[in-house]
C-alpha cells in the first residue's frame, strides 16, 4: 500500500509569469486507495490534476511517475465523442492499438455494468444526462486500463442521488485495485471516500490533522446519538440521515493525564504514539485509542503534559465536536 507511484518535488506552475498557481515542495502519491485534493475554487486542484495527467507542462520542478504508470483524467464536465456510448468506449482501445475482437464487446458490457450503466451501449453519448455522462466518461477511462484514475470535481452539478452512486462507484474502483485521485471542494465526499486528504490553498498543499473515523451511525431520540467504531462508540449530535464517517478537529480534542469528570463528554484512554510541532507554538499529539486520534495542544499545555511516546493519556471531546458525514 505504501508504495509510491508519483513523486512531486519543487513543483512550480504558472499560466502567466509571476502568477503562480501551484507551488509544491514535496508530495508523494501512494498506490491504492483514494486520495483527495480538497480546496476552494481557484485553489489549484484542477491545475494539479492536469499536471499529473501530463496535460500541462511543468515550468519548474519535477513530477516523476513510476515506470509504466499511466493516469487518466476524467474532467469535471467530461467531453464525450460523437456517436454511441459503445463507440466512446472503444476509442481508448483504438488509441492504444489494441486489436479488435469479440472480447471487446464483453469488456464494454462489463465496464458499463461496473459503472451502473448496463445496456447503455447503443445510446447516443451526447444525449445522456449529466450524471450518466460522467459515468460514461469513467467507463471510458477504465477502458484505457490505467492503474491510476483521476477525477476532477466528480460530483459538481449532479443531484444527491447521483452523488451517492458516484461515491459507491469510487469505493468500488478502490476495491478493484485502482488508485483513485479526486479533486473536490465538497467536504462530505472528501471525508466519506478518502483514505487521504490533501488540502490545497493558493496552490500550496498543507497537512490537516483531523481524525477521520469510519463506522456506523445509530440514531437515538434525544440530544445525542451514537457513532459505533470497532470496540467503542462515540457520543455525537442527533441528526437524521445516513452517516458513515465521523471527523474530529484536532483543536477540539483535549488531553489530560487523569480521567476528567465531565458529564456527557466522550472520554477515551490511549497511549501517545507521536508528537510533532505544528508551528505557532502548538503541538500535534497522536494518541492511540484503538485508532490514532490527533489533538492539537498549545505550548503551555505541552509543557504541563510533557508527553512522551508510550505515555498513557486521556482524550476528551464534546459530542458536538464529532462532525458526521
Amino acid at each position: 500500500m505504501s508504495d509510491i507511484i508519483c513523486r512531486i518535488r519543487d513543483l512550480k506552475f504558472a499560466y502567466e509569469p509571476g502568477v503562480p498557481v501551484l507551488s509544491i515542495d514535496e508530495l508523494n502519491l501512494e498506490r491504492g486507495g483514494i486520495l483527495t485534493f480538497r480546496g476552494h475554487n481557484g485553489s489549484g486542484k484542477t491545475t494539479l490534476l492536469k499536471v499529473l495527467a501530463g496535460l500541462l507542462p511543468v515550468s519548474r520542478g519535477e513530477v516523476i511517475f513510476n515506470d509504466g504508470e499511466r493516469s487518466v483524467l476524467v474532467q469535471q464536465e467530461p467531453y464525450l465523442f460523437q456517436g454511441s456510448v459503445k463507440q466512446n468506449l472503444l476509442y481508448p482501445l483504438k488509441f492504444r492499438g489494441v486489436s479488435s475482437g469479440k472480447e471487446r464487446s464483453g469488456k464494454i458490457a462489463e465496464v458499463l455494468e461496473f459503472v451502473g450503466l448496463g445496456g447503455f451501449e447503443k445510446r447516443k453519448a451526447r444525449h445522456l444526462s449529466g450524471g450518466e455522462s460522467k459515468r460514461v466518461a469513467i467507463a471510458r477511462a477504465l477502458m484505457a486500463e490505467s492503474p491510476v484514475l483521476m477525477l476532477d470535481e466528480p460530483n459538481a452539478n449532479v443531484d444527491r442521488a447521483t452523488s451517492g452512486a458516484l461515491e459507491e462507484l469510487f469505493l468500488h474502483l478502490k476495491a478493484s485495485g485502482i488508485t483513485v485521485i479526486l479533486s473536490t471542494h465538497d467536504d462530505r465526499l472528501a471525508y466519506r471516500v478518502s483514505d487521504r486528504i490533501v488540502d490545497l490553498e493558493g496552490g500550496v498543499p498543507f497537512q490537516h490533522y483531523e481524525t477521520i473515523l469510519k463506522g456506523s451511525y445509530e440514531y437515538r431520540d434525544g440530544m445525542y446519538s451514537l457513532f459505533h467504531l470497532q470496540g467503542t462508540a462515540l457520543s455525537c449530535p442527533s441528526r437524521h440521515g445516513e452517516y458513515t464517517t465521523a471527523v474530529l478537529s484536532p483543536s477540539d480534542v483535549l488531553l489530560s493525564k487523569d480521567r476528567v469528570k465531565k458529564e456527557g463528554y466522550n472520554q477515551l484512554d490511549g497511549v501517545v504514539e507521536a508528537v510533532s510541532p505544528s508551528g505557532e507554538d502548538r503541538y500535534i499529539i497522536t494518541v492511540n485509542c484503538g485508532f490514532p486520534l490527533r489533538a492539537s495542544v498549545p505550548g503551555a499545555a505541552y509543557e504541563l503534559l510533557k508527553p512522551l511516546k508510550g505515555m498513557k493519556l486521556y482524550a476528551l471531546f464534546s459530542p458536538s465536536a464529532v462532525h458526521l458525514f
Partner: peptide
C-alpha cells in the same frame, strides 16, 4: 476539452489529428 480528452486517453500521432 477535446484535445485534453484525446491526450489523456492516449491518442497520439495521426490518430490524434484524425480524431
Amino acid at each position: 476539452r477535446l484535445p485534453e480528452t484525446l491526450r489523456t486517453l492516449g491518442a497520439s500521432g495521426p490518430r490524434y489529428y484524425f480524431m
